[in-house]
Nucleic acid binder design. Structure first.
Length: 284
DNA sequence: CAAACTACCTGACTGC
DNA sequence: TGCAGTCAGGTAGTTT
C-alpha cells in the first residue's frame, strides 16, 4: 500500500520524467479515476491538452502536477494506484485491465499511465493554490515536509481524545502514515496501539512521532516498502524495505527485540500487529 | 464540534 | 470443480 515514502518515490519519478513536458492528449478509461470533475472524462481530457507540467508537489499521500496558468492535477494512489512511465512493460497496456488514465505528450516521448486495481485512487483537475490545492487544506504536514514541526505534531496528537493508532492514521493530525507505518512506529516506540492519546506524556508522544519519522525516512532511502506487490515505482520496480518490517504482517513470528510472537488483532476494519510484551496493553 | 462508523472496490485466498 | 465468504485499507461522507 502506498504510504508517505512510496508516494514520495512516485513523486520523484514523475518529476524526472514529466517536468517541462507538454501534455498532448489524455485518455480516461474509467470514470471512477476522475474525481469530482464537472463535465466528466471528456472535459478532463480536453482541459489538460496542451498544458505544460511545471512541478510535482506532494503533501502526505496526495501529490499534484502543477500546470502552467495556476492549475494542477491532484492525484491520490488510494490502495493500489500506480503511475508508470511507458514503454517498458511487455504487454500492450491499452489492454491492461487496470489502466485508468493515459497521458501522452506532444514531444512524442514516453506516456504516463495511471493504473489502479482497486480503484480507490484517482485524480482531479484543480487550482494549484498558493501552497496547496484547496481540496487538501485539511491535510496536515507530513514528517518529510521541511516545515514539519515535531512539537506541533506532539500537541496535535495529545489534543485528540482517541487511541494513539487512530490519531496516527488521522491525516489531519499528521499526514502520510497508513496502517503499515502506524504499526511499525508503535512497535519501535513500544507503545500499544490502543493507548489513549490522553494518557500519553509529551516524551512518549514525541517518541512515537520520532519513530514514525525515522521508519518512513529509512523506507524512503530503501526505495519504498514492497510488502504488498501492488506497490511499484514509476518504472514498475518494487522497493525492498519489506525485509526491514518489524511488526506489520509478522503475526506469529518472533518479535525482533524479545522473541515473543507478534500478535494480530482486528482494528478499524483492518489489522493491528504488535508485540504483546514490548507493547503493553493499557488498563481500562 | 469531534469522534466513530460505513461505503466504495477488486482479486487472492480459504473452506466446504 | 465451484462458489460463497473473508480480507486487504485510504478517504469522503454520514451518523452519533
Amino acid at each position: 500500500m502506498p504510504e508517505l515514502p512510496e508516494v514520495e518515490v512516485v513523486r520523484r519519478g514523475l518529476a524526472v520524467h514529466t517536468v517541462g513536458r507538454r501534455i498532448g492528449s489524455v485518455s480516461v478509461y474509467s470514470d471512477r479515476a476522475v474525481r469530482r470533475h464537472l463535465g466528466g472524462r471528456t472535459d478532463f481530457e480536453g482541459v489538460l491538452r496542451g498544458r505544460q507540467i511545471q512541478e510535482i508537489r506532494r503533501r502526505g499521500k496526495y501529490l499534484w502536477l502543477v500546470l502552467d496558468e495556476g492549475d494542477a492535477v491532484l492525484a491520490h494512489l488510494g490502495m493500489s494506484g500506480q503511475f508508470r512511465i511507458g514503454p517498458g512493460v511487455a504487454v500492450d497496456r491499452v489492454d491492461h485491465p487496470h489502466l485508468r488514465v493515459r497521458l501522452r505528450f506532444d514531444d512524442g516521448g514516453p506516456d504516463v499511465d495511471f493504473l489502479d486495481q482497486r480503484t480507490f485512487g484517482g485524480m482531479s483537475f484543480v487550482l494549484a493554490g498558493a501552497e496547496l490545492p484547496e481540496q487538501i487544506t485539511h491535510i496536515a504536514r507530513d514528517p518529510l515536509d521541511p516545515e514539519f514541526s515535531l512539537e506541533a505534531a506532539v500537541a496535535a496528537v495529545r489534543a485528540k481524545r482517541t487511541e494513539i493508532k487512530r490519531a496516527l492514521l488521522d491525516q489531519t493530525v499528521i499526514s502520510g502514515i497508513g496502517n503499515i507505518y502506524a504499526d511499525e512506529s508503535l512497535w519501535r516506540a513500544r507503545v500499544h496501539y490502543l493507548r489513549p492519546t490522553a494518557t500519553l506524556t509529551r516524551p512518549v508522544a514525541r517518541s512515537v512521532i520520532e519513530a514514525a519519522t525515522a521508519v518512513m525516512t529509512e523506507a524512503l532511502t530503501a526505495g519504498g516498502t514492497s510488502f504488498d506487490a501492488l506497490y511499484v515505482n514509476v518504472n514498475g520496480e518494487s522497493g525492498y524495505f519489506d525485509r526491514e518490517l518489524d511488526a506489520y504482517g509478522r503475526e506469529g513470528r518472533p518479535c525482533r527485540r524479545c522473541g515473543t510472537p507478534i500478535r494480530r488483532e482486528p482494528f478499524m476494519n483492518r489489522s493491528s500487529y504488535f508485540c504483546p510484551r514490548c507493547q503493553r496493553r493499557p488498563r481500562r
